[in-house]
Structure formats: C-alpha cells, structure tokens
Design a protein around this nucleic acid. Structure first.
Lengths: 257, 257
DNA sequence: CTCTAGCGTCTGGCATGCTAGCACTGGCGC
DNA sequence: GCGCCAGTGCTAGCATGCCAGACGCTAGAG
C-alpha cells in the first residue's frame, strides 16, 4: 500500500525507472530492540563454513572442481544452501564460478600474495599507530599473556601453537580498537594467506624472531610511540612477506603467475 | 536434524573429517583456454546492480525495509535472483537481513565512516608511496588529463563533475599499479562513503583545495618521493574525513551512534 | 588417419511451491 | 478499561523441477 504510494510518487520522471520499493522505516525501528536476537545459523551458513574450512585446510585443492551434488548428498541438504554458500565464497574470491560449466577452488597467484601482504602491511601498521592512543586494560592483559605464551611456544618449537598465538596477537590489537570493518578485511586477507601457509609452515628458526618482533610492536604501543609502532609492524610484516616469498619459490607448483 | 547430518558427514574417518568431494583438476585445466569467455551477466548480477545503485543513490533510504516481492514484480524476475542479490549486498554490509523478519538497508553510523576513512587513508597512502616506483606511461597521461579537467571543474564550481574526476583520479593510481584486490576493497569502501556524500555535497570552496592536494600527490609520485606521496595522500584524506565529519554534524538524523 | 559436426551429459541459473518463525492485532478474560 | 493470548499475515529459508549453455565423445566424411 505504502510501497505503491512511494512507487507512484517516484514515477515523476518519464524514463526514470527507480527501485524505490520500500516500506516505512518506523515499523522496523520500533522493535529494533527485539532484533538483537541471536544470529541463527542457517543451513547455508553451516555449509559455507564447512566448505571454507575445507578450502583453507587444503582438503579442496586450488584449481580443483567442486561437485555440488556430492556436497548436497554428503551434508544432507538440498542444492539451495550449497549454491548460496558457493556464491558467497565466489564473492570473497575463494571460489571461481564458470557459468554452465562448474565451480572451482580459486588458484593462488604469487602476485596476489604480494598484494595481500601489502594491504595487510598498510592496514596493520596504521592500526598499530592508532593503538598507541590507548587500548582497554583487558586488551593489555590479554596481549601480555599472549606474548608470554608465544615465548613458551617459540622455545618449545611448537610451530602450530605459535601460529595460533600469532594470529591471536594481531586480532587482539584490532579488536581492542573495536575496528569492525578493518577486522573483516584482515580476516578475509588471512583466509587467503592461510592457504599459502598450509603449503609450508614457517621454518622453526623464524619463531623466536617473530616473537621478538611482536614484543617490539607491543612495547612501542605501550610507550605511545606511534611512528615506532607502525614501523615495527611494517618490519614484522615485511619479514612475513619474505617468508611467503620463500614458500612460493620452493613450491612453484602451487602457484600461478 | 541438520546437526546430525553434518555430524554424520564428518564421520568419514577416525580423526580425518574432510569434505574432499572433488573431481580431477585435469578436466578443467585441459580446456582452461576456452574459459576466458566473457563474463555473462546473469539476472542475479543485474538485480544486484539495480538494488545497489538504488541504495547508493538514496532511493532506498538507510534503515528502510526492502520489499522483495515488489522488486520481483518490478524487475520481472522470480524471487531467486533477488534473494541472491540481497545476500550479496548483505555480505558487503549494505543490507542487513533479519531472519524470518525482513531485509533492510543498512544504517550509517558515524563511527563506521571514521573507520572507513581510516582504512582508506592507510591503503591509499601505501599505494601512493608504491606508485613512486613507477606507473605506466598511459597512466601518467591519463592522470595529467584528469588533473587538467579537475582544475577546470573547480574553477567552474561544478561540484558533481569534480566528484567524478576525484573518484577517477584515485582509481587511476590503483589501476596503474594493477592492484586488483586493493581496488576491490577501496571500491567497497567508496560504496559506503558514497551514501554519506549523497546526503550533502562538499562545499564548493573545497574544490580548489582538493584539486591542489591532488596535484601535490601526483607531483610527489612523479618526483619519486615515496614519503612525500604517502604524506600528501594522508593529508588529503584527512581533509576529506573532516568534510565527512562536518556532514555528519550538520545532518545528525541520517546517522546513528 | 584426421578433422568436424552432432549429440549426450553435466553444470549452473532460474522459477516456484512449501515450511517455519516472527510481529502485529483483535478478541477474550480479568 | 487493561492486559494477555491466539490468530493472521508477513518474512526469509529451503526443496525441487526445469531450462539453457558448455564440454566431451563418437561417428562419419574427406
């Protein structure tokens, strides 16, 4: 009813074809409080997570075809959730859809890795600088705990454990500043980089170095040295980039470009 | 029920729970050459573009509900493409889906604007620095042409025309470096910021200033002054951020938070 | 023996009917 | 007159059937 009114109102222009199909805002705003309901996980969400995990873990190899029907059978759902999930994955470039042909796990190009790392470097350096303006007390405590664990993992040569702590360290800073969008972008980048990392874990010798780099970043943040924090983050991620380059060099088959 | 299905699907091996439903890579790789076919635009793509344009132009107001069925009727398609399109828009946070309730155009929070601009600043400053390592000759020519037009638009007080050139200027640099992913991220940010800009165009007095800032950035790139280019870009985007802040201040109704 | 044309099969894209769950509202009880 | 509750009308989510396009194989012609 109201939608119609809006439609008619907007049809003032002759060739003007607008999409203003929209109802009143009041109805939704009124009960917005109720809308904080827990985000129900739909089947599509679950399928999405499953496939993404499979891609990141390497169970679905880069360049490989994805058999939708087999997935449906395996997960016991219809094609709809699977299609929706794959569309989402295509949107974040983890999957490539070739119309009327098939869906494939995206390949990894060495150039893409460099670009992802450049973006990460720019963003995380900025964030590190920003963090010198103050982080919540909880975040400080968590980072300090994280750094102690890193030290322990590095000394024990626990590469996998260290990696988890490494990821957590970077996320703690972003979350401490409550940067939702930056967090999402960085998570997306990490999804892609994660696939590279799976090909070859960092050499164990890198652990103590990385740990020291993390400490240097955090110390600069505590000292409220914006330039120093940004610089330390840049240096750290440049080292990480070098590691990736080495992985690509030693595993040329897994990369294109 | 679904949980059970997923659980069963996961019980493929003892510890090994994989989704490796994947056919040989060879079949797809063999005729990959043929796969360069032009990216056909599906109905879902078209619907996506239509709705996005409507949101960015403000025809669909922030917070407003989206009537899917009316959209179907209006565009002459079934619900499927519309659903797919809205899912994609929800993924880029232009639309919020409340399960079993409705789909709504995302509201704009002042905090989000600040964060988007922070991300833009970090990325574009990095890119400006990177550009000092060399841009293609074509890009140089196009940027110089663009800057001349900017000058003309600024002198004529053509705010809309200047904005188009402004966007083009920033894109030219990114494209000159062939940074696909950074380009996509920045486009996504610009989608959101575009909605803010629609609320109030920049004051005409800002045009000559912005034009001068653009020139300063380009001059530093030509002079291969990495720090200068990055700094000039930061200064330019800080000014832009201040403009946004002023818009938000003068139009509090359009923002939340 | 090679090249090509045609057909079969597989894929994603789309339409449509159905289900479950939320919000609003009118009627009933208190 | 006020508040609770069930009915109703909406929504998104899901299942399924059908269609069109693209690849691959094979048979037939040169």
């Amino acid at each position: 009813m109201l939608a119609l009114a809006l439609l008619n109102a907007r049809q003032t222009g002759p060739g003007e074809s607008t999409l203003a199909v929209q109802t009143s805002e009041k109805t939704s705003a009124r009960k917005r409080l109720t809308a904080d309901r827990a985000r129900r996980t739909s089947k599509a969400d679950q399928v999405y997570s499953e496939i993404k995990e499979a891609i990141l873990s390497g169970a679905l190899a880069p360049g490989g075809a994805i058999d939708k029907l087999a997935l449906c059978a395996k997960l016991g759902v219809s094609r709809f959730p699977v299609t929706a999930a794959i569309n989402r994955l295509a949107f974040e470039r983890l999957v490539v859809i070739e119309p009327q042909h098939g869906s494939f796990v995206a390949k990894i190009a060495a150039n893409d890795v460099r670009e992802w790392m450049m973006i990460r470097r720019a963003l995380e350096a900025e964030i590190a600088s920003e963090a010198t303006r103050g982080l919540p007390g909880d975040t400080h405590r968590e980072i300090e705990r994280n750094l102690r664990y890193q030290q322990a993992a590095a000394e024990a040569g626990d590469v996998a454990g260290f990696y988890t702590l490494d990821v957590e360290f970077h996320k703690l800073i972003v979350d401490g500043l409550a940067l939702r969008h930056a967090r999402e972008i960085l998570d997306g980048l990490r999804s892609h980089l994660e696939r590279v990392r799976r090909i070859a874990l960092s050499p164990p010798g890198r652990l103590p170095t990385a740990c020291a780099e993390h400490k240097r970043i955090y110390d600069a943040i505590v000292a409220r040295d914006a330039a120093g924090a940004g610089g330390a983050m840049r240096a750290h991620l440049d080292e990480t980039t070098a590691t990736f380059e080495r992985i690509a060099e030693q595993n040329p088959d897994n990369f294109i470009g």
